[in-house]
Design a protein around this nucleic acid. Sequence first.
DNA 1: AACAAAATGACATAGCTC
DNA 2: GAGCTATGTCATTTTGTT
Length: 549
Amino acid sequence: MPGEACEAGPSHPSLYSYFIAMGFSKNIVEKAIKKNGEGNSEAILETLLTYSATENPYLKNEDGPIESIARNYVDGLEDDSSDTDDFDDLEFIEAPPGRDRNLLTLVEMGFSAEEASAARDRCGLDASVLELADSIHAAHMAKDSHGIVLGSPIINKPNEATFYSTSRKKRILMEEKRKHRRNSHHGSRRSEYLKKAALDVDIPKPMIGFSLPFQNCIKRRNLPDSALGPPYFYYENVALAPKGVWDTISRFLYDIEPEFVDSKYFCASMRKRAYIHNLPIENRFPLLPLPKKTIQEALPSTKKWWPEWDNRTQLNCLQTCTASAKLTEKIKKALDDSGDVPSLRVQEYVLAQCKKWNLVWVGRHKAAPLEPDEIEMLLRFPKNHTRGGGIGRTERFKSLGNSFQIDTVAYHLSVLKNIFPDGINVLSLFSGIGGAEVALHSLGIRLKAVVSVEISEVNRNIIRCWWEQTNQKGTLIEVDDVQKLDGGNLEKFMRRIGGFHLVIGGSPCNNLTGSNRHSRDGLEGKDSSLFYDFFRILDLVKCIMGKKF
DNA sequence: AACAAAATGACATAGCTC
DNA sequence: GAGCTATGTCATTTTGTT
């Protein structure tokens, strides 16, 4: 495999703190380093992962934040985990000793046994764990992009992809034109210009961003001075927005190239999003343990009922709406009526509905929508994060559907851990149910102060409950509307807490997403235009930080 | 009133064919 | 390239039910 630059572990100044930062306990890291010597980070990682297979995995001692999250997470899975399936895999791997321990390590890292052994076949017996992990990712991507040659340095390809297909000058000119026309005409013809407007941002395939866990960085980037912090910022929205939207967003956010990432590389469900941020992209690390990436592993109880002809291994995007009971009844009836093996026609119908509504198999002929706690698990929120406190079931689905996938966001934010060892002050815009806060907390980054802006009262309640239950020692300031934030009250907040280290948020997507048949009005839509408030507030914060207030 | 279900039929993109 | 099909998407509005 290609040994390109910017590898995470080995070059790091302090191996010890690096592995601690990954979430391993001090004791285990000490043991592992003693055993392998400081020079061999790969062997250390392997030892760490092996230890955690037998001992309690990845948990920090004391009252570390990772502990509580991980425990909730594990608890949530315990109920339905049928031990028989996993056992087979382990036995298969444990049988041959020696080098094949690499396979066990890979499975611990979250890969399947088949993937692991296939990777070993490709890379040879002497391949290291990281090389094997790299190879598996490469294989995934090759599968995605429909048969790019295996084993070649695929990950170097997107490096060369040009972000701006036209020059900056030309783009700005076109935007001016667009604006001009928008002013002189109205609604009905707007979609026409949008169609004509060139799409300048290329959406990369596969949608893996600048890097994935246990993989070399794909690109290096030099941000323009105007983009640099303080503060750091992080903006998120749907990747497949109407044409020109990401071009506009990018231009407002200091011409930074969006990072397009599908969360299917982090968990068992898809989530195609783009993130614009000015964070460093070297030395990222993922939350551990890595989530299971297939439906059958993440929801083991479904395995038993999964029909042969349903070839799904991952779920579609988790949405705000859920399938009706009527629909699942129809599906059951259709299958009941068609005997052992349903006809191709019935299969097609059922499969289409399953894909459309993200149904999973929970019994014979019983397809069902995901339960809220399962969605919480897939997005990596603590179990029952959105439960109780006066929130209804429908609202729960809606709030979850609008949220971050924690693993994905945390991976990007992980670089903050070493930059701010004492913790950070966060301005969280469009907080929702607190995805940003949970991600930072899960990384073990202390939240010194959080100003959380969220319009929905139930969502604010959820964040406050979480804040109390995780025994946060910092300050939580709640604001109900981004439009109420101006230079005056921002400066007051910043005086009080000492400025912001991170401004983070994802503005409403409802006018951008393809699911919306009624008001997909683009960035100028009623809700999605709140993006401009994100920019406005970020710029204000930059200004005030610059003045040293 | 508060939910739940059904209807709606947009739109970008990928991968075909001709 | 134009034209077709298939697929996927942080949804909204209307209608029916406890």
